[in-house]
Design a protein around this nucleic acid. Structure first.
Length: 596
RNA sequence: GGGGCGGUAGCUCAAUUGGUUAGAGUACCGGCCUGUCGAGCCGGAUGUUGCGGGUUCGAGUCCCGUCCGCCUCGCCA
């Protein structure tokens, strides 16, 4: 077999006269007639024009050259020369061409289901791209994404290795635990009827590595959560996971801020600027979100006190039931936002649990349209509180505390999009800190962790952990960039008694706690150092750097909404003998799903 | 579990109120063409309209069910 001497991205004018051997895929062919055929040969590194020219190419090679079609795989040996025609300025190799002297046709392609051409591949249905991922990934655009992803992991390893972090692998087959996302479970063959779980994250293991004296741990690891996917979420995803001993929250935020800023700068050429801190409470109050997008200025204000003075039924009901009324002033919105548009925003609010979206316009010193007559009595106070100016529109978020914030917060994002308030190419991030320890879950009738059960309460809040869990704040923190959570972590509980108390508050009995988390509590009893850490979502980082909203774009072999891998057709049926060996009996006969 | 959108040639799409033999571009096949580069020109082949049922003289089009894909609420400690 002919061995290539360079890649399709290498050759330049100064290589003229040399002999070169190139291997790759036929990107396109341009057959000019019997005596002249052009091939653009593609590999990961670029495109090089190969010419079959009757004056310089042997006759049998001419014939083979003319038979080439898109995506055939070939190796061509020839002479590098300047192009006879005009150079192609679109190509790095555009000044030269390889005159074919020898060719080895390694593989011809079957009829192609998709073409790996950036020009029109973006229009191809994603289903086809996923089914024939090996062709889709040949596209320069997809190769670039794989490369950026590699650069990020490479940067990460270097950054933390330089700072004494050890890369340590943790197991994939672990024990199922209550709390958190739904586990993927794996049957045990040796212990029939027992199950492994795939890790939602290496959380407990990395804490135990701290107890084991590893001091600084890093892993770029797969996490698996059997929950429904979204455009930016996949059951199987990758985290940059780390943990440190003898540190406090400031140490971690400082280190990770440096990491994030350097990463964006070096890999993406992006200036993140400063990463300020905001409390969870302020984030909710001002932005209606625990992951505020601060690239634009619209802010929410709590006007519950003022709203309670009206007779407006919607406001009154919220106020009387301990809920809240939030208001958002949209400068100039009176003209720009038609009834049709505000109705669309109302749908957004409803999606997030609000009953609707009361609006009022402020024009010529008067409240107009919408709920104008209801808020007329509090006009002066509203104008004052919101700093209303002529031509503004005000929108109200009404409901329980979280609903009033989140519904209006989502409207805030929709308004920003509608009015194009988000500057192109701008990156702004911040740390959200001081999360609540718990959130009361109505359905379950118990507290659930806002972060996870291993998150330590703020030192100053340890006193109220049990007496007032609803107001107890944790040492959890999230890094939010452009309104997306890119990472989060916390200082962990390193005291077994505190950890047991938290499990108790979460409604776990002492028995259950011992059964499910005994090994962690045990580890904490044997000299656990104070420790904390963070996990960054690798997929999200890549998404931001390349500017996509679709997580499947940044994963080589992603899954669909129903967790299928269309290429290898996972999940699939198991052999009955396998199931027997595992002691598994199907309740119903397996259904044939892929019945196209 | 709920809501929404979609599925027609290998691919991207079209097809009037239900009405003749379901079309176009591209890829593919054949022919022409010696400087192209999204090559060009001429010709050709290509369909279980996702699948199943129903209504109708007649269904790509209407109805029911189902499968697949996408977006989303719940969910994602």
């Amino acid at each position: 077999m002919l061995k290539r001497t360079c890649t399709c991205g290498d050759l330049r004018k100064q290589n003229t006269g040399e002999t070169g051997i190139l291997s790759g895929w036929v990107n396109t062919y341009r057959d000019q007639g019997k005596g002249l055929v052009f091939i653009d040969l593609r590999d990961r590194y670029g495109l090089t024009q190969v010419v079959f020219d009757a004056e310089d190419t042997p006759e049998n090679i001419m014939e083979l050259g003319a038979s080439l079609r898109r995506e055939d795989v070939v190796t061509v040996k020839g002479e590098i020369r300047l192009r006879d025609g005009k150079p192609n300025e679109k190509l790095a190799t555009g000044e030269i061409e390889l005159v074919a002297k020898e060719i080895e046709i390694i593989n011809r392609t079957a009829k192609l289901p998709i073409l790996p051409d950036d020009h029109d591949a973006d229009k191809i249905g994603e289903e086809h791209r996923l089914r024939y991922r090996y062709i889709d990934l040949r596209r320069p655009k997809m190769q670039k994404i794989l490369q950026i992803r590699h650069k990020i992991t490479q940067f990460t390893r270097n950054f933390f290795a330089d700072r004494e972090f050890l890369e340590i692998e943790t197991p994939l087959l672990i024990t199922p635990t209550p709390e958190g996302a739904r586990d993927f479970i794996v049957p045990s063959r040796h212990q029939t009827g027992q199950w492994y779980a795939l890790p939602q994250s290496p959380q407990i293991f990395k804490q135990i590595l701290m107890v084991a004296g590893c001091d600084k741990y890093l892993q770029i690891c797969k996490c698996l959560r059997d929950e429904d996917p979204r455009a930016d979420r996949q059951a199987e995803f990758t985290q940059i996971d780390l943990e440190m001993s003898f540190v406090d929250q400031d140490d971690i935020l400082e280190l990770m801020s440096t990491f994030a800023k350097n990463l964006y700068k070096e890999v993406g050429g992006i200036d993140l600027g400063d990463l300020p801190q905001i409390s969870w409470k302020d984030a909710m109050n001002q932005y209606g979100s625990d992951r505020p997008d601060i690239r634009f200025d619209l802010q929410l204000k709590d006007i519950t006190d003022i709203a309670s003075k009206t007779d407006f039924k919607v406001f009154k009901e919220a106020c009387d039931t301990g809920g809240n009324v939030k208001a958002m002033r949209v400068p100039g919105g009176a003209e720009k936002l038609s009834r049709k548009k505000t109705d669309a925003f109302a749908e957004v609010a409803k999606t997030y649990g609000a009953g609707g979206l009361p609006v009022v316009k402020y024009q010529g010193g008067e409240f107009l349209t919408g709920v104008a007559k209801f808020v007329e009595p509090i006009k002066d106070e509203l104008v004052e509180a919101l700093g209303l100016e002529d031509g503004d529109i005000v929108m109200f978020g009404v409901g329980s505390y979280r609903v009033s914030c989140i519904a209006l917060g989502e409207v805030r994002l929709a308004v920003a999009k509608e009015l194009a308030l988000i500057p192109e190419g701008l990156f702004r991030g911040l740390w959200v800190v001081d999360f609540p320890m718990f959130d009361w879950n109505e359905d379950a009738g118990r507290w659930v962790s806002e972060h996870h059960p291993f998150t330590a309460p703020l030192e100053t809040h340890i006193d109220i952990l049990e007496t007032d869990p609803g107001n107890c704040l944790s040492s959890g923190y999230d890094l939010v960039i452009n309104g997306a959570e890119v990472g989060g972590g916390s200082i962990r509980i390193h005291n077994p008694e505190v950890q047991a108390k938290v499990f108790g508050l979460l409604g776990l009995s002492a028995e259950e706690t011992e059964d499910k988390f005994g090994f962690l509590l045990n580890a904490l009893r044997f000299g656990a150092p104070p420790h904390g850490g963070v996990a960054f979502g690798l997929d999200r980082l890549v998404m931001m750097m390349i500017g996509t909203d679709n997580i499947r774009d940044v994963i080589a072999f992603p899954k669909t909404q129903t967790g299928a891998d269309l290429m290898c057709e996972a999940p699939g049926a198991a052999d009955p003998a396998q199931l027997h060996e595992l002691g598994i009996i199907m309740r119903e006969p397996a259904q044939t799903t892929n019945s196209e």
